[in-house]
Amino acid sequence: MTRFILLLAAVLSLSACNTIKGVGQDIKKAGETIEGAAKK
C-alpha cells in the first residue's frame, strides 16, 4: 500500500511539472509576441 501511495505521488508531481512548464512556455510566447508588436 505504501508503494502505491509513493508511486501515485511521483506520477502527480511529474504531471504537475509538465503543466507548470507548459504555462511557462505560453507566457514566454505571449511576451515575445508583445515585444514584437512593440518594436513595430
Rank of each mutant, 00 (worst) to 15 (best):
M1L: 06
M1N: 05
M1H: 04
M1S: 07
M1T: 04
M1V: 01
M1F: 05
T2E: 12
T2D: 08
T2I: 04
T2F: 05
T2M: 05
R3F: 04
R3M: 04
R3A: 03
R3G: 01
R3N: 02
F4P: 00
F4A: 09
F4Q: 09
I5L: 10
I5P: 00
I5N: 03
I5E: 10
I5W: 02
L7F: 02
L7A: 07
L7D: 09
L8M: 04
L8K: 08
L8R: 04
A9P: 00
A9K: 09
A9W: 01
A10R: 06
A10F: 07
A10H: 01
A10V: 03
A10N: 03
A10D: 04
V11F: 08
L12V: 07
L12C: 05
S13W: 03
S13V: 12
L14G: 14
L14C: 12
S15V: 14
S15Y: 06
A16I: 07
A16E: 01
A16Q: 02
C17E: 05
C17Y: 12
N18Y: 15
N18P: 00
N18K: 12
T19W: 07
I20D: 01
I20R: 09
I20M: 08
K21A: 14
K21I: 11
K21T: 12
K21N: 12
K21E: 11
G22F: 08
G22Y: 10
V23N: 10
V23R: 13
V23C: 02
V23F: 11
V23T: 09
G24H: 13
G24V: 09
G24M: 15
G24S: 15
Q25S: 14
Q25P: 00
Q25N: 14
Q25V: 13
D26N: 15
D26K: 15
D26L: 15
D26Y: 13
D26V: 14
I27W: 10
I27A: 14
I27P: 01
K28T: 15
K28P: 00
K29W: 07
K29I: 11
K29L: 12
K29M: 09
K29E: 15
A30S: 11
A30M: 10
G31H: 07
G31T: 10
G31W: 09
E32G: 00
E32T: 05
E32I: 07
E32Y: 04
T33W: 02
I34S: 05
I34F: 06
I34L: 11
I34C: 01
E35C: 02
E35V: 04
E35W: 02
E35G: 07
G36Y: 02
A37L: 14
A37D: 10
A37C: 02
A37G: 02
A37Q: 08
A37W: 06
A38K: 08
A38Y: 06
A38G: 01
A38I: 08
K39V: 08
K40L: 15
